[in-house]
């Protein structure tokens, strides 16, 4: 199973709920407004940093770029992917749970 989060962690609880209800080792992809969770030096960096130790974490490059977030502002342990990478992740990891 792969989890996707498309909401900013500063507005909604999708990230918290996903972390509470995902098994260790299952990948998490941040997209749309979810990409803000991947940025360095925020109030959720601690939570996200812990999560990178328990889940392979990915973030959508096109969404970062659109929002003015450079790749060097992305936290360590989070891999930047494009739409093709998103497709590959879904192929590899099975059922998708979108935390809408």
């Amino acid at each position: 199973m792969i989890h996707t989060i498309n909401k900013s962690p500063f507005e909604r609880n999708s990230l918290d709920s996903c972390l509470r209800l995902s098994e260790k080792g299952s990948p998490i992809l941040l997209l749309e407004d979810g990409v803000y969770a991947a940025t360095k030096g925020t109030s959720v960096s601690g939570t996200v940093g812990t999560a990178t130790g328990e889940h392979p974490m990915f973030v959508m490059g096109p969404d970062l770029q659109a929002r003015g977030i450079a790749e060097d502002q992305v936290m360590d342990g989070i891999t930047v992917v494009d739409y093709g990478g998103f497709v590959d992740l879904v192929v590899e990891h099975g059922t998708v749970q979108s935390w809408l």
Binding site: N6, E32, P62, Y83, G84, F86, V87
Partner: peptide, 26 residues
């Protein structure tokens, strides 16, 4: 796709995903 084209990004993301999937031969 659960949202329309003008308020949320959902349909754009879905479109890009579908295009990428087709390009990869799925």
């Amino acid at each position: 796709v659960n949202e329309g084209p003008f308020t949320h990004q959902a349909s754009d993301s879905a479109y890009q995903f579908v295009k990428a999937a087709i390009e990869k031969g799925h």
